[in-house]
């Protein structure tokens, strides 16, 4: 443990009226998941830094009128968290629908059909149609890499690949360029992935992608099954922190 880190203490809090104890350095999302409380999330990935990008993990904290992303807030003593309400479900469904409307998700012909976190969450949250108009953006597929491909049609801009490549592989190939709906994932400052001088072809980004945006070449419809890397466990071994 680094000397600047303050010692974590044990706190007790309530999640959906259940008394739970946790370490003060944990996020509400981590504690909820550890206790088998379902909170949807797309940009969070165990072992990577949280960025609060997807907003799916919104919860209610008693005493606050605002909704708070559970991945971006640490637990504190006597906190009361509500993970399930009409209001929360409404926002979660809207977020999922907007993600579908923003790019071109044709599940029936997608490499990740049946193995996709976006698709799974849609079903889990009861999204059976998209109320928003589809944008049909004309986006590209980068198939220049010898082993992998990036299909922008399926990208939800969660930045899991960005962080995996930067924080774990140490290569920092990926970045997000632009703002709002015009944001695009880019490799090596906007050059084709296959020309990247930084990519080590480790595959971490591919296997951490929640959707069919990053996949192994040669995979056909429904064939891209992600082997989810266990970054948290790797980090524990590396730092020998004993947690």
């Amino acid at each position: 443990m680094s000397p600047t880190m303050t010692e974590a203490t044990v706190v007790t809090l309530k999640i959906d009226d259940r008394e739970i104890s946790a370490r003060s350095d944990q996020t509400v999302l981590e504690v909820a998941w550890e206790n088998d409380v379902f909170v949807p999330a797309l940009c969070h990935y165990e072992g990577l830094g949280d960025v609060g990008a997807c907003r799916l993990c919104l919860v209610e904290i008693k005493g606050s009128p605002k909704l708070t992303p559970a991945c971006a807030i640490k637990v504190v003593q006597d906190m009361e968290v509500i993970t399930l309400s009409e209001r929360l479900q409404k926002y979660r469904r809207s977020i999922i629908e907007l993600l579908f409307a923003e790019r071109n998700h044709i599940c029936s012909v997608c490499v990740s059909n049946g193995h996709c976190e976006l698709q799974w969450l849609a079903q889990k949250l009861g999204v059976d149609h998209i109320r928003y108009p589809y944008l049909y953006p004309k986006v590209s597929v980068d198939a220049s890499h010898e082993r992998f491909a990036l299909d922008h049609n399926r990208c939800i801009l969660c930045a899991r690949c960005v962080r995996a490549c930067d924080e774990v592989e140490g290569a920092h190939v990926w970045d997000l360029l632009g703002r709002g709906v015009d944001t695009r994932l880019i490799s090596d400052l906007g050059t084709p992935w296959g020309e990247s001088e930084t990519c080590t072809t480790c595959g971490k980004c591919v296997h951490i992608c929640p959707t069919g945006a990053l996949f192994e070449k040669g995979k056909s419809v429904a064939e891209m099954v992600h082997a989810r890397p266990r970054f948290a466990a790797m980090a524990r071994v590396r730092n020998n922190s004993g947690r």
Binding site: F100, N104, I106, C107, S108, Y136
Partner: peptide, 19 residues
């Protein structure tokens, strides 16, 4: 009843909307 993905999402037929 919107019966199947083409009725529900416009699915594969909607791919022409891109061009």
């Amino acid at each position: 009843i919107a019966f199947g993905d083409c009725a529900v999402t416009a699915n594969v037929p909607s791919m022409r909307n891109l061009v």
